[in-house]
Amino acid sequence: MRFLLIEDNLSLARATIDRLSLDGHVVDHAECLADANGFVSTTDYDLILLDIMLPDGDGRSFLKSHRSALESTPVIATTARSEVSDRVGILDLGADDYITKPFDFAELEARCRAVLRRRGGNASNIISLGDVRFDSLSGTLEVGQRTLHLRNRELRLFEIFAAAPEQIFSKPKLLDRLFSYDEDVSENAIEVYVGRLRRHLKGSRAEIVTDRGLGYRLSIK
């Protein structure tokens, strides 16, 4: 999916772009409102991440001036200001959600997913892998005649594999993507979720393969 990130803090922006790219998203970065206006007028985005405090103005004025034009594009506001005072204004101006900085990328991802799901997905959410159809937004997996609803972590794990078939992901890497930093989990947790995914995929041409000592990958027979 195509995201627009409006953020003046460069290192935060770079890290956010890195992380979103890992999930297979394309991210354009605007450092100020002027740039953002340029991007919005030329490109359709699936989601906009909008910092509220920008060098050349207030993100809220961007919301106000683009709300009608952005009818179809969800906006998640990012703010470092006090939540108590800011949230109402932000949501009233038409942001779909907001997240307070510094944020956990897992939370950002979860909020993006929730917002996109609420807005209703489009065809680009659906990935075909052999005889498996995966809808990352609704979290459904169609295997032959069966339709399965994946739970959150199964969904996120499968999403990682599905974005890059045949790529090997180490257990620590998967752990980082799946759990936030304040959760103390062992690498066994990954085995549990991989086990569940394998059960779901049974009887299809897609398979999660273990490469001893390296990690896991999704393979299509």
Partner: peptide
Amino acid sequence: FIADAAHRVRTPLATVRTQAEI
């Protein structure tokens, strides 16, 4: 002031956190 104080504290923390994550 209260709203800005939060901003002043959290913005550098966000940078530090990001760097740490990278």
